[in-house]
Design a protein around this nucleic acid. Structure first.
Lengths: 241, 241
DNA sequence: CGCAAGGGCGCACGGCGTGCGCTACGGTGA
DNA sequence: TCACCGTAGCGCACGCCGTGCGCCCTTGCG
C-alpha cells in the first residue's frame, strides 16, 4: 500500500491516460460501497477512501461535490440491486413478496444504509430509485389498484419493509461491532435481558422463551408482517360482500 | 454568554453548592433534546452542548460515558413521550391506532431521530422503551393474540410506523434545511420532478396530478397503510370460515 | 509546437470526540 | 475546628474529520 521509491526515471514513470483519468465517479462510488460494506459507516472518510484509490482525499472532489452527495450516489447504487419480478399467472402477491424480500436482502447486505436513510429518505431523484418505483407501481396497477391507490399501497409495503430492515440492520450493526456471531451475542445478552425485563412480565416471558435460530426467526417475523399487510391490501381488491 | 471579568475576589467568587452539582445527567439530556429539536443532529456537538449549559465540553463526560450513550438517553426520552391508551369497549383497533399516531407524532416532532434509529435500533434496554413495549404487548394480548403472535403483531405495526415516520422525517429534515415551508418546497421542486419523471409514465402521472395539502396528504397515506395492516391482523383474530 | 483545460495534490483551517491530570470545593470523621 | 479525600469541573492536547485554495503537470487540440 505504501508508495514506492519516489525516484522514477522518465521511462518507468506511469503514464496517465486522459481517456481513463485514473479516477472516475463510478470508481469512487464502487470503492465507497466496498469500504462501507467491509467496515461500516464510521469507517468511511474521504481520506481513507482516497487511500483505497491511491489518491489524495481532495482529488475526489473533482468527481463528487461533497460527502453527502457521494452517499446519495452509493445509496442509489444499492437500490439498483433490488429486483422487481414480473407477475406470473396473475399472482401479484408472489411478485410483491419476492420484491420485498429482495429489498430486505439488499438493505441487510449493506446494513450501514439504515443510518443513511434517515438523512436522504427516498425523496431524492436517483435513477435507480426512480426506475424501481416505476416498476413497483406497475406491479400494483397490474394487480388491480387504480393509480392513486397503487401509490398508497406501494408506500405502505415499502414503509413496512424499510421499518423492518432498518431495525434489523441496526441490530446487525451492533452485533458486528461486538465481533461475535448473532447467536453468541444473544446468548451473552440473555442474562442481562432476563434481569432487565423482570419488572415487565410479558417481556420477561418472551425473553425467557426459547428462541430457535436467530436469523430464521427474524425472517419469519418479516414474513408475518408482510403477509398481514398483503392480506389487508388484498381485501381492498376483492370486497367480500 | 461570555465569561465575566476573570478577576474575582474571595468574596465575590460564586459558591458552588454540592447538593445541586450544577450539572446532572437529566439536565444534560434535556439540553441535548432541546438543541437537537432546534438545530438538528449535525448541530449537536459536545462543545456546543457544553456551552449551552455554561460548562466545558469535557465536563459532560462526568455524567455521560460518551456521545453515543448520550444519544441513547435522548432517544429513550423521546420514547417516553409516546402514549399507550387503554382499550375501551373492547375496541383494540382504536387503541392501536391512537398509539401508532402518538408514535408517529413523537418521531416527527423530533425528526433528527430518523438518523439515530439506524444506529441504536430499538434493541437497547432503555426504561421508557421497555415500559412502552410492555404496554403495547398487553394491548395486543388483550385484543386476543396469544403471546408469541402478539409480539409478531406488535413488531409488524411498529415496523410500519417506524418506516413511515423515518421516511417522513428525512423529508421534513430536507425541507427544514431549505428554510421554506413544505408547500413552498414542493411547488419549487415540481418542475424538476416533472422533468425527471418524463421517462417513467406512472411516476410522471403522479407527479403531474394535483396534490392538495401536503401535510394532510402525508397523514392520509400513513392512515391508509395502518388500516391495511390492522385489517390483516384482524383477520387473524376472526377466521372468516 | 505552443497553449488552454482540467485533473491531482499539498497545505491549511476550523471543528470534532475525548483522554489526562490538575484544581478546588464541600461533606465527613477525629 | 480542622485535616482529609472523593469528585465535579476544566484546560490542554491529540489525532481525526470535511473541504477550500492555489499550484503543477499532463494531455489533447489547433
Amino acid at each position: 500500500m505504501a508508495a514506492e521509491e519516489p525516484v522514477v526515471s522518465v521511462w518507468t514513470r506511469p503514464r496517465r491516460r486522459r481517456e481513463q483519468p485514473a479516477l472516475s465517479r463510478a470508481q469512487i462510488v464502487a470503492a465507497a460501497l466496498e469500504l462501507l460494506d467491509a467496515e461500516g459507516l464510521e469507517a468511511l472518510s474521504m481520506r481513507t477512501l482516497g487511500a483505497r484509490l491511491d489518491a489524495a482525499a481532495t482529488s475526489l472532489y473533482r468527481h463528487v461535490a461533497n460527502k453527502d452527495e457521494l452517499l446519495e450516489l452509493v445509496v442509489d447504487e444499492v437500490y439498483g440491486q433490488i429486483e422487481v419480478p414480473e407477475i406470473r399467472d396473475g399472482d401479484w402477491r408472489r411478485a410483491v413478496t419476492a420484491c420485498a424480500a429482495s429489498t430486505r436482502a439488499a438493505l441487510l447486505r449493506h446494513a450501514w444504509i439504515a443510518s443513511v436513510l434517515g438523512q436522504t429518505g427516498l425523496a431524492y431523484l436517483g435513477p435507480n430509485v426512480m426506475r424501481l418505483n416505476e416498476r413497483m407501481l406497475a406491479l400494483f396497477e397490474t394487480a388491480g389498484f387504480r393509480p392513486a391507490e397503487a401509490d398508497r399501497a406501494l408506500g405502505a409495503v415499502m414503509a413496512y419493509v424499510i421499518g423492518t430492515a432498518t431495525t434489523e440492520a441496526a441490530w446487525l450493526t451492533t452485533v458486528a461491532r461486538s465481533g461475535r456471531t448473532e447467536q453468541e451475542w444473544i446468548d451473552r445478552l440473555r442474562p442481562a435481558l432476563r434481569e432487565a425485563t423482570k419488572p415487565y412480565p410479558r417481556l420477561h416471558a418472551l425473553a425467557t422463551a426459547e428462541g430457535g435460530d436467530a436469523e430464521t426467526s427474524r425472517g419469519d417475523g418479516f414474513a408475518y408482517g408482510l403477509e398481514r399487510m398483503l392480506d389487508g391490501l388484498t381485501a381492498r381488491l376483492t370486497p367480500t360482500e
